[in-house]
Design a protein around this nucleic acid. Structure first.
Lengths: 344, 344
DNA sequence: TTGAAAGCGCTAACAC
DNA sequence: GTGTTAGCGCTTTCAA
C-alpha cells in the first residue's frame, strides 16, 4: 500500500527525484533556469505525490498573502450581498482569497475584525464602515501600510473610497415625486443613527429646491430596515392630521411593508399614495405594485473597488498618489408605484 | 519624530526590553513561567510599539491557521446568504477566520476553490456542493486529513453532513395542497440538473401517497430560480388543456413570479390558484398575497455545521468516529396563498 | 525564571 | 543548470 497521506513538501519531491529543494521549487514555478527535462521529471513526481504548495510558508517569506479582507456591516442587506459576491468573483479571478467578516454595525466589532485581518497579514482591506463618522481606526490601518478602500456614501481624508451616492439617490427619488406634483412627501428612514444619514439629506435638499419647508413629522426615523418597520412607519405617517400623498422608503424591504400597509388599509398605489424604494432588489419588480426605486450597480462598485485596491497593493500603495475617490451613479427605475397625486 | 511604522516583531520587543525573543513570546502569551514583573514590562513595550503577532508565522509552526473555508454555489440565494452570515458569526465567536469562495454551481470552480483553501491550510471546510452527485473530490480532501462538513440535501459516504431536507419540505408543501383538496398540482422546479432534485422527489412522493399518477406536464423544470422563470413557467402550466389548481414553486422568488403572473392574468390567489413557495424569505410575508411556504432555520443549520466542524478540528478528525449526519427539519408556514380549490 | 538553538515549508542570494 | 545557505516571524525543545 502507499504511504501515509501526509502533505508532501518540496523536500519530499527533492528526495524522490534526487534534486535539491531549490531546483524543485524553481521547476514547479516554471523557472526558465531549469531544463525542460528536469522540469518534466519533477512535475511528474509532484503530480504523483499530489503536491500542493503550502501558501502559508510562501506568504511568510514573500511577505504577502494574496488575500484581502472584506468587512461588511452584515451580509443580509441585498446590496451588500451583491457586493460581496461581486468582490469574491473579481478577486478569485485575480488569484486572491477573500476573508470575510461582519461588524453588525458596531465599531468595536469592526475594530476587532480589522485587527484579525491585520494579524493574518491580508494584503488589503475593503470595508463598508459601521459608522461613517468613525473612520480613524481605518485610517490608522492605512497608515500602518495596509491598503484600504472604503465602500461608503462619503469619503474620508486619507482613504480611497468608492462611493455609492445615497444622498443623490434620495434626491432623485424625492425629486421624482415632486415633479409628479406631490407636495407632502413622507420619508421612512431605516438608518441607525437616526436622521443623520445621507438619504435624509438628499430628501431635504430636493424639498428645499422646491421651496418646501421640511416638516419633521414627515421625516421619520424608524430604527430598522425590515418590512415591519415600514409598516409601522406608515401607521404613524398616515395618522398625521395632514398625511402625505407619497412616501419615500429608504430601502425596498421597507417599501414592501409600506405596500402591505396600503393594501391592508384600502389605499391604492399609486392612486392614493405613491411609493418609492431604494436598492432595486430583484423582487422589487414583482411587488404587488411593481416598485419605483433607486438602483445602483453593486457589481460595478465592487469591480471599481477591487481594481483600485489591487492597484494599491501591486503598484505600491503610497506611490499611487493621493487617495482617489470614485463613485457609482444611482439611477431611478420608474415602475408602477408612482403617479401624480389625486387632484384636489 | 518616531521611527518608521514597520510592523514590530518579537525581536524588536526583545531588543527594546533586553529579554530574549523567547521570553517575550512567553510573556505575551501569558505564560506562568514568566515573572509578573517581566510580563508587565514586556506588555508595556508591546503596547507602545503597537505589536500585533504575525499569525502567518504562528500558523507555519503550529500547523494550524485557525481559519476555515466556506464554499457556496452563490451568495445571492437568501438561504445561503443567511447561512453565510450565521457561519461567520459562529466562527468569529470562536476566534476563527472565514475564507469565502463561490462555485457558481460548477464543479470545476468548486475544485479550484477547494485547492485554494487546501493550499492556504485552512483547518476545515464547510461546503454547499455544486452537485450532489459529484462529491468525490470533497471526500478526497477529507482523506487528506482536512475536516469537511457538507451542507447539503443528502449525505455522502465518508463525509459529515448537516442536511436541510429539501425532499421532506417539498413533500410537506405538496401534501398541504393535497389535504386542501387539490388534485392537479403543478410544480415549477428551478433546479439546474432538471428534475433530478430532491424537491421533485418529495413532490412525487406526496402525489403517490394520494394515488395520483405523476403527470409529467405538471412537473416543469424551468432552468432557474429568478422570478421571471416562475412567470414563464406559469405561462406554460396554464396553457395546458387541464391546468393545475395549485402550484408548488421550488423557491420564493419563483413564487413571486407566479403571483405576478396571476395578477396580470386575472387569477385570484388563492381563489383560483393556490401557491406554495420554498425558503420563507423575509419578504414572503409581504408578497401581494402573503405566501405559504416552507421554512428552515439556516441559523440552526449553520450553528450545527460549525459546531461539528470545530469538534472535528479540535478533537482530532478521525477520532470523532464515523461521519455524523444531522438534519434540520423543515416546517410549513401557512399564510394566505393557499386554500381549497374552487368547487366544481 | 530565562536564553539558545532548531525548525515550520518555502523562496532568494549566491555559489559552483 | 543546479546546489548551498540563509532567513521570513514565530513556537518549541532543551539547557542553564
Amino acid at each position: 500500500m502507499s504511504g501515509i497521506p501526509v502533505r508532501p513538501r518540496l523536500k519530499d519531491i527533492a528526495a524522490a527525484t534526487g534534486f535539491s529543494t531549490n531546483t524543485v521549487s524553481l521547476a514547479l514555478r516554471q523557472s526558465p533556469l531549469v531544463t525542460e527535462e528536469t522540469r518534466k521529471v519533477i512535475a511528474e513526481v509532484a503530480r504523483e505525490l499530489r503536491y500542493r504548495p503550502n501558501e502559508i510558508a510562501k506568504s511568510l517569506v514573500q511577505r504577502q498573502t494574496r488575500s484581502i479582507g472584506l468587512i461588511l456591516t452584515n451580509i443580509l442587506n441585498p446590496i451588500l450581498t451583491q457586493t460581496a459576491e461581486a468582490v469574491e468573483l473579481a478577486l478569485s479571478r485575480r488569484g486572491y482569497a477573500l476573508l470575510l467578516a461582519t461588524s453588525s454595525t458596531m465599531v468595536e466589532q469592526e475594530k476587532r475584525a480589522l485587527e484579525g485581518f491585520s494579524g493574518r497579514q491580508v494584503d488589503g482591506v475593503l470595508i463598508y464602515p459601521a459608522h461613517h463618522g468613525q473612520l480613524d481606526h481605518i485610517a490608522g490601518l492605512r497608515r500602518l501600510g495596509v491598503p484600504v478602500v472604503l465602500l461608503a456614501t462619503e469619503g474620508h481624508a486619507g482613504i480611497d473610497v468608492v462611493s455609492f451616492r445615497d444622498r443623490e439617490g434620495a434626491y432623485m427619488a424625492t425629486r421624482h415625486l415632486l415633479e409628479l406634483g406631490h407636495r407632502r412627501i413622507g420619508m421612512l428612514d431605516g438608518g441607525k443613527p437616526a436622521g443623520s444619514g445621507e438619504k435624509s439629506a438628499g430628501y431635504s435638499q430636493a424639498l428645499a429646491e422646491y421651496g418646501i419647508a421640511l416638516d419633521p413629522q414627515l421625516l421619520r426615523p424608524i430604527g430598522g430596515y425590515a418590512p415591519g418597520f415600514g409598516y409601522r412607519g406608515m401607521d404613524e405617517l398616515m395618522a398625521l392630521r395632514a398625511p402625505p400623498t407619497a412616501v419615500f422608503a429608504s430601502n425596498d424591504a421597507l417599501a414592501a411593508g409600506v405596500l402591505d400597509w396600503c393594501s391592508r388599509n384600502g389605499r391604492q398605489v399609486p392612486g392614493d399614495i405613491s411609493v418609492v424604494g431604494f436598492d432595486n432588489i430583484e423582487l422589487a419588480a414583482y411587488f404587488s405594485t411593481p416598485l419605483t426605486t433607486i438602483a445602483y450597480d453593486p457589481q460595478a462598485m465592487a469591480r471599481m473597488a477591487v481594481e483600485r485596491l489591487l492597484s494599491l497593493i501591486e503598484n505600491g500603495e503610497q506611490a499611487a498618489g493621493r487617495p482617489q475617490r470614485q463613485a457609482v451613479e444611482p439611477r431611478i427605475i420608474i415602475r408602477e408605484s408612482t403617479a401624480p397625486p389625486r387632484a384636489g
